[in-house]
Nucleic acid binder design. Structure first.
Length: 516
DNA sequence: CGAATTTGACCAGCGC
DNA sequence: GCGCTGGTCAAATTCG
């Protein structure tokens, strides 16, 4: 919104580090980001997008000064004000000085040539990025198709009305998760995955979505798309909305998904963690077994936004704030809110896809695999069936060595399967990957991902931040989702370090490191 | 005065 | 059918 190019700029900048870029790359709009020497380490939440815009304006002003000189303005003194600390600008200034004795028209044509090269370079980068995104989406769609053929020999409709087909879930969730609807919905989700992928490009008629698709990664997009359906329909239980038909009455692709909830546990003294969204409290209840009331909030950033969240303090440890998100936003989000939304969407998508796929043995096997590996910071995946909805919990209350735990709480008995997941080290690539729990994905297939784990410095940085500041939760989400959702929507122009009020911002290095 | 919050009532789902 | 519980509504209240 404020700066539609910001995300893209960040992407390019992060890659320009490793390459010998032509000066043109540095001179592009990247001024706004690279010219701010304090930007990388800027931890001020007041550094809003407006500030970036102001900086852009200032640089534009400088550029205009330069153009004045290029036009042969007699006031050559403006050359001395051009130095913004940018190499290219300096080089240009130096070049101008060197060309002072030459014809201004020659200088102008030279600048035009450079501009042309810049545009050409930008165009190439855009096309490369677009191509990568498309390839990723295609590969993911193919993978889902392959998994479908592997695990869904029956056609979708047959599967939906076949209660006996719930054995997959039963393996995971034990006998208590024989919920037929859950199985149906999950099955539909899985069957729709490929369709979701393809629809990523079917929505190009939406101007805004077209922008988003330019650089969107398929995984989070698919997750959000799926959850879009889930949220908009699952929350349709409201009296104000039309009741969805039963599974048997609807075509497979129209069957609403089972609600997936994403719960975030974080230590915080504040009554509510800041996630960048605007919420309105609409109810409060005393929940059974917890002396602390549960507060109900709905998103008020757009009329009809289906997203709800529940906030409650943990009965065992009242310092722990449990925030449960449900649904997906139907409107553009500010960077901070996008971060959280991406994270919860990715987690929910992973839950939905994973709950249908993994077997107990698979979890155990994978646990054995990972626990036998030398991956530090292993955590656990918890399966339970007490919840009416499959719930995934991002536990940020643990010690720094277990900065983030992943608990899957579908239904039942509270059985715990050891599934080491080091979200910070193994990377949100896995955390947000719907296939992470797929038992038929050989461990070897995950190795490349695991090998991409960031250095310990990243881990330590995040972990230390979490340990030192409970409000870091939202910022961590921003960092995670900045990786999961790279690149994100055009209005997400804060390098993934959304301006979360009261929350410290992640060093840019985190995002840059993980992206590469 | 409008927006946000509080709080009791209401409804639906579920288990007995 | 009844009671319990979770979730939502909406009038009343509070706040800025």
């Amino acid at each position: 919104m404020d700066n539609p190019h910001h995300r893209q700029l960040t992407f390019f900048l992060s890659h320009s580090i490793d390459h010998t870029d032509p000066p043109s790359v540095k001179e592009m709009d990247f001024f706004s980001t690279s010219s701010a020497p304090d930007h990388k380490n800027n931890t001020s939440s007041s550094d809003t997008n407006d500030d970036y815009q102001k900086r852009d304006d200032q640089h534009d002003t400088h550029d205009r000064h330069g153009s004045i000189t290029a036009d042969g303005s007699p006031t050559r003194a403006t050359d001395h004000h051009v130095n913004t600390g940018l190499n290219l600008t300096c080089a240009s200034a130096g070049m101008k000085k060197a060309d002072n004795s030459e014809n201004p028209e020659t200088e102008l044509s030279s600048l035009e040539n450079q501009l042309g090269k810049l545009q050409e370079e930008n165009s190439k980068l855009r096309s490369v990025l677009d191509q990568i995104t498309k390839n990723y989406a295609q590969l993911q769609a193919q993978l889902f198709n392959a998994l479908q053929k592997q695990k869904l020999p029956k056609n979708v409709e047959t599967k939906i009305v076949d209660p006996g087909a719930s054995t997959k879930l039963d393996v995971v969730n034990n006998a208590s998760v024989s919920d037929e609807k859950t199985d149906q919905d999950v099955s539909v989700y899985r069957s729709n995955n490929a369709e979701v992928m393809s629809k990523t490009h079917d929505r190009d008629d939406d101007p805004q979505l077209t922008k988003l698709n330019l650089g969107k990664q398929a995984c989070p997009d698919a997750a959000e798309d799926v959850l879009d359906r889930s949220s908009s329909q699952s929350w349709g239980s409201s009296k104000l909305e039309e009741q969805p038909k039963t599974a048997e009455q609807l075509p497979a692709e129209q069957i609403p998904l089972r609600k997936a909830r994403v719960s975030v546990r974080a230590r915080s003294e504040a009554p509510m963690i800041s996630d960048g969204c605007q919420w309105r409290k609409y109810g409060q209840k005393m929940a059974k077994g917890n002396p602390c009331p549960r507060a109900y909030y709905r998103c008020t950033m757009a009329v009809g936004c289906p997203v709800r969240k529940q906030v409650q303090r943990c009965a065992d440890d009242k310092a722990v704030l449990i925030t449960t998100y449900e649904g997906n936003h139907n409107h553009p989000l500010p960077p901070a809110a996008t971060a959280m939304a991406n994270t919860t969407s990715a987690a929910a998508a992973m839950l939905l896809s994973g709950s249908a796929a993994p077997s107990k043995e698979a979890l155990t096997n994978s646990a054995g695999y990972y626990s036998s590996s030398s991956i530090p910071y292993a955590s656990m995946a918890t399966l339970s069936a007490s919840a009416p909805f499959p719930t995934i919990t991002l536990d940020l209350t643990q010690n720094p060595n277990n900065a983030m735990q992943l608990h899957r709480v579908p239904a039942g008995h509270g059985a715990t399967f050891p599934l080491p997941l080091h979200a910070a080290a193994a990377g949100p690539h896995l955390l947000g990957h719907p296939l992470f729990f797929q038992q038929k994905l050989p461990p070897a297939a995950l190795m490349p991902l695991l090998q991409r784990q960031p250095s310990s410095s990243m881990v330590e940085t995040v972990s230390a931040a979490i340990a030192s500041d409970p409000n870091f939760t939202a910022a961590l989400m921003a960092a995670i989702s900045s990786i999961i959702g790279v690149p994100r929507s055009s209005d997400d122009n804060n390098n993934g370090n959304g301006a979360i009020p009261g929350s410290p911002q992640l060093p840019q290095s985190c995002t840059t490191f993980s992206t590469n």
